[in-house]
């Protein structure tokens, strides 16, 4: 448990810093609210729609899904990497098998055009 005391203290400091600076700013900053000032920035023109009507490419979702798959892969790699010296050749071959399966998925995603951005 004592190993985690520094983390708790440091996180408290890290959390309190933005709170304190924002509170100080709240006390001393200028404030003259105006409905025109509060409009979202649109190069000087009043916005016709809200930002939530903006369309964006479906590929962003695709990247997010691919990320989850490959991020889990890296999580598997980490303990293997640390134990590598003790696992010896067996561990190396095991990981080659694991990577070959992943590579199949990677090549599939690439050939289906999931990584293209045109």
């Amino acid at each position: 448990m004592t190993n985690y005391i520094p983390i708790v203290i440091f996180t408290l400091v890290a959390v309190s810093f933005p709170i304190i600076t924002l509170l100080i700013a709240k006390v001393i900053r200028a404030g003259s609210p105006d409905p025109v000032k509060a409009e979202p920035y649109e190069c000087g023109v009043a916005a016709e729609t809200t930002a939530f009507d903006t369309r964006f490419s479906i590929r962003y979702y695709l990247i997010a899904v691919l990320f989850v798959v490959f991020d889990v892969e890296t999580i598997f790699l980490f303990p293997w990497a640390v134990m590598f010296d003790r696992l010896a050749l067996f561990g190396f071959i095991e990981m080659m098998v694991f990577l070959a399966i992943l590579l199949a998925g990677y090549v599939y995603a690439w050939r289906r055009g999931a990584l293209e951005w045109a």
Binding site: I24, A25, K26, I28, R29, A38, E39, T50
Partner: peptide, 11 residues
């Protein structure tokens, strides 16, 4: 920066 007005966009 600390003395500037803090704006929240409408909406």
């Amino acid at each position: 920066l600390i003395t500037k007005e803090d704006l929240t966009p409408s909406g």
